[in-house]
C-alpha cells in the first residue's frame, strides 16, 4: 500500500470520526477533533518558523549580511516583554508601531476602494450625460470628464 492510498484511508477514517458527532458526542470524535486542531496548529507553527525565522531573518543576516533586519526583529521581540510585568511597558512601542503602520496602510486604501469607487459607480448613471468617459473620483481630484470642467483639491493623494 503506497503513501497516497494510506493517506486517503486515514483521511476517510478521520472524516467519518468527525461525522460521528452527528449521532452523538463520543471519544472517537474527540480524538479526531483534537488531532485536527493539533495538526493545524503544529503545521502553522513549523511553517511560520521555517519561513519567517529561518528564511526571512537568519539566512539573509548570515548569508547576505542584511543586519538592518535586526530592527524589525527587535520591535517584534519587544512584544514578548508583556510576559515580564516590570518590562511590559516596552511592548507598547511595538504595538504603537504596528497599529500606526496598519492604520496608515489600511485607512486611505479602504476609503479609496470602498467609499470613493462605490460612490463613483453609484453616481455614474445619474451623470451619464457628462460624456463618454463618465465621472472619476479620486482622493485628490474630482472631475467631470466631457464637460471640460474640473474641481481640483490640493489634498494629498492616497493612490
Amino acid at each position: 500500500m503506497d503513501a497516497t492510498i494510506l493517506g486517503a484511508w486515514v483521511a476517510t477514517g478521520l472524516t467519518l470520526l468527525i461525522f460521528s458527532f452527528l449521532y452523538k458526542d463520543n471519544p472517537l470524535f474527540k480524538l479526531a477533533e483534537h488531532l485536527y486542531v493539533g495538526v493545524s496548529v503544529g503545521y502553522t507553527i513549523v511553517k511560520a518558523y521555517d519561513t519567517v525565522i529561518v528564511h526571512l531573518v537568519i539566512k539573509p543576516i548570515i548569508e547576505n549580511g542584511e543586519f538592518a533586519l535586526l530592527i524589525p526583529v527587535a520591535i517584534g521581540m519587544l512584544m514578548l516583554t508583556r510576559y515580564v510585568p516590570k518590562a511590559a511597558w516596552m511592548s507598547r512601542y511595538a504595538f504603537a508601531f504596528i497599529v500606526g503602520m496598519g492604520a496608515g496602510l489600511a485607512i486611505p486604501r479602504t476609503i479609496s476602494s470602498f467609499i470613493l469607487k462605490q460612490i463613483e459607480d453609484t453616481v455614474r448613471p445619474v451623470l451619464s450625460l457628462a460624456g463618454p468617459d463618465g465621472v472619476t473620483f479620486s482622493m485628490n481630484r474630482l472631475s467631470i470628464a466631457g464637460l471640460g470642467k474640473g474641481w481640483h483639491e490640493p489634498a494629498s493623494s492616497f493612490s
Binding site: K47, A48, T51, V52, H55, L56, P60, L105, A106
Partner: peptide, 22 residues
C-alpha cells in the same frame, strides 16, 4: 509559497516581487 504579512505582502509585491518572495 507563503510569506507573512497578509496585505503587507501584497503591497510589497506591488513594489518588488523578489523582496516579498526572495
Amino acid at each position: 509559497g507563503w510569506s507573512p504579512g497578509g496585505q503587507a505582502v501584497i503591497i510589497n509585491m506591488g513594489q518588488d516581487l523578489y523582496s516579498a518572495f526572495p
